[in-house]
Amino acid sequence: MRGWTFLLLAVLVAGAVYAAAAAVNNGYVFFAGYVVLQYVVLATAWNLLGGYTGYVNFGIAGFFALAAYTTVALEKLAPLPLPVVILAGGAISGLLGLGMGYLTLRLRGVFFSIATLAMAVVAQTFVVNWNFVGGSAGAFVIRPQFTAWLRIDYIHYLFLLMLGLCVIALATARLIERSRLGDGFAAIRDDELAAEAAGVPTLRLKLIATALSGAFMGMAGAPLPYYVTYLDPPSAFSLSYAVNTIAMPLIGGTAAWPGPLIGALLLATLQQLVTVTISSAVNLLIVGLMLVGFIIIAPRGIIGWFGIGAGLVRKGKRR
């Protein structure tokens, strides 16, 4: 399938999803659906770095929340249309990824992982001390009831935007898999020293992956303040974002773009159900246990059962 055909198909599927949600015409569908879609973007973004190059990023909450707070700051400074705000949040988080990567990606992968984990804590420290965006007390954001033009319900609008981000993120992931960039990423994951020796510009490729991955995480986080309307540091930097985002690709499979998509749809939907029916603490325990269980028992994830991704890794060129 060519790239444009895939994009067209993805847009059609997204349109069908929106039409189906609108047909149900229940506010909760959009509310819960937004969270599921947000995790599709986060999981796909994480996989750009984690799945393709093998570098584990634990600082998801940092990238995600920093963009959310960028939105809060922008709302106070100069109210802009939401798509522009999303781009701004993505740019900030992408730069953060670039900076982190530049400082730590020359070392062994473990150091990068630890640095990202510490980065999330420090980003939280800065936000707690930043009174302009509410500090530790949190910030309120007023969500308009309708959009300015077309007068769509704002929750529907947020849902639609996140759906669009899903399409862009998945198309990007698929494009990378099928390009020279993806071949370079795979070479880094399989044997970085050999790749370096063979002339693959490893540091530059890793920086591209980190910046792209960070930017998509930021874009997923930027609309958050309008969704929750009240944002405080403990909930914006919640560790559950990191655990979920890592668990989803690992459960779905990290080798190809359907993996994070399947993992996110499955796990996020399950969580929405468990949160409503049992409790949110139990639902987090389930995610933790599933994560550990899957990486021990099914290291290639759900798509591994169907043989997706296995061929992609071994074949040198694939178009």
């Binding site: 984690g50 584990v56 634990f58 655990v243 325990l285 933790g288 550990v292 990486i295 290291p299």
Partner: peptide, 20 residues
Amino acid sequence: DASLRGLAFFFGLLFITEVG
């Protein structure tokens, strides 16, 4: 296969002890 999955394994353990 200790790098990626090993790290995620310990991350999961951290989370399980905390939630537990």
